[in-house]
Design a binder for these strands. Sequence first.
DNA 1: CGCTAACGTGAATGAGCGTTAACTACCACC
DNA 2: GGTGGTAGTTAACGCTCATTCACGTTAGCG
Lengths: 192, 192
Amino acid sequence: MPRVPVTTSRREQILTEAARLFARHGFHGVSIDGIGAAVGVSGPALYRHFPSKEGLLAEMLVGISEHLLAGGQERAAEHADPVALLDALVAFHTDFALRQPELITVQDRDLANLPDPSRRRVRGLQRAYVEIWVDALQRAGLAAGEEAARVAAHAAFGLMNSTPRSAGHTRAEVAAPVLVAMTRAALRASPV
Amino acid sequence: MPRVPVTTSRREQILTEAARLFARHGFHGVSIDGIGAAVGVSGPALYRHFPSKEGLLAEMLVGISEHLLAGGQERAAEHADPVALLDALVAFHTDFALRQPELITVQDRDLANLPDPSRRRVRGLQRAYVEIWVDALQRAGLAAGEEAARVAAHAAFGLMNSTPRSAGHTRAEVAAPVLVAMTRAALRASPV
DNA sequence: CGCTAACGTGAATGAGCGTTAACTACCACC
DNA sequence: GGTGGTAGTTAACGCTCATTCACGTTAGCG
C-alpha cells in the first residue's frame, strides 16, 4: 500500500535543494552526493525518488514550464483586451521571477542538459507560453510583425528574469515596481 | 626565439571555438578533447597554449569584462550629459550582444566555474562597468535611489542580453532597433 | 649544419561521479 | 506476529575526463 507522507514530501525537499545547488553551480557542477547531503540523506538515496539525475532535472524544468504556461493561459482566459492581458502577464511573470530566482536561473541555463524527449517537452511548453505573449503583442498593435513581436517577448523575459543577477543585494519590494514599470514601458516602445 | 604566428593565432582560434562550445553545452559539458577536435588538433595540445581548462575560461571571461568596461569608460569620457551617455551605452552594449551572443551566454552562465582569483577579477571589472550605468542613471534623475538604479541597470542588461534566446531565428537588422528602443524606453520608466 | 624551441601526438594516470547491488530498519496492515 | 513495501545505508563497478609524460616533427637562426 502506498504510504502518503504527511510532512513536506521528500521529493519536494530534494527538488528545492537541487534547484538551489543547480542555480549556484550548474547541473554538472553538482554531484548526487552533494544533493543528498543538502537534504540530510546520503547519495544514492535519491534513486528512491527519481530515476536518474537527468530525470530529476527533467521534472524540475517541466514543472516550471507547466506552471508558467498555466498561469499564462489563465490570464489569457480572463482578459479579452490585449493591453490588459499584457499587464496581467507582466505582473504574473515578474512575481514568479522574484519569488523563484533559482528556478529561473536553472530554466534557461541547463535546458541543454536534458535528455532529448524531456527537452522537446519543455521546448514545446515554452513555445506555447511565448505564443501567448506574441499574440497579445500583435493584437495590441505593439509590434511591427511577428518577428519583432518574438524579439520583444524574449527581451521582456530577459528584463524580468534579471532578478537572479541583482537579487541578494536587493529587496523584492524595491525591485518589483521597478521591473514592472520598465517592462511595461519597454513593451510599449517596440514599434518606435 | 619566440616564433610569431602569421595566421590567426592558434590561441584566438581555440578561444573562439571554446566560446561556441561552452555557450551550447556549458563549461562542464565540453571536454578538452572536444575543444581540440573543433580546432583540428587533438586533446592535450591545448596545454601548449593554456595552463588548464579553467585558465582558458578565465582568459575568455576576463577578456569580455575588460572589453565591456573599456567601451563603457570610452563612452563616459566622450559624453558629459548623462542622457546622451546612456544612449551611447545602450548602442554599444546592444551591438556587442548582437555580435557576440556566445560570449554573452558564457559570461553570465559560467562565472561560477572560475577559480577564485580570476572570479574576483571578473567580478571587479563587472562591478566597475555596472557602476558607469548606475552613475549615469542617477545623474540623469532616472532612478529613485541607488538600489533602484542598480536593479534598472541589471534589468537593462537582461533585456539587451536576451539575444542568445531569440537569435538563430531572427535577423540582427530586425532585432537591433527593437532592442535599442525597448531599452531606452525601459530606462526612462524607472521612477514612475 | 645542427641546436633549440614551438607545437603536436598518443598512451598512462588518477580522481570524481552516476549508477547498481546487497543489505538493513521501520511502519502499516491482515 | 509475520509480511511486504518504503526509504535508507555502504561498498563496488565502470566510465569519463583533466592532466602529465615520453616522444616525434618542423622551422628558424647562429
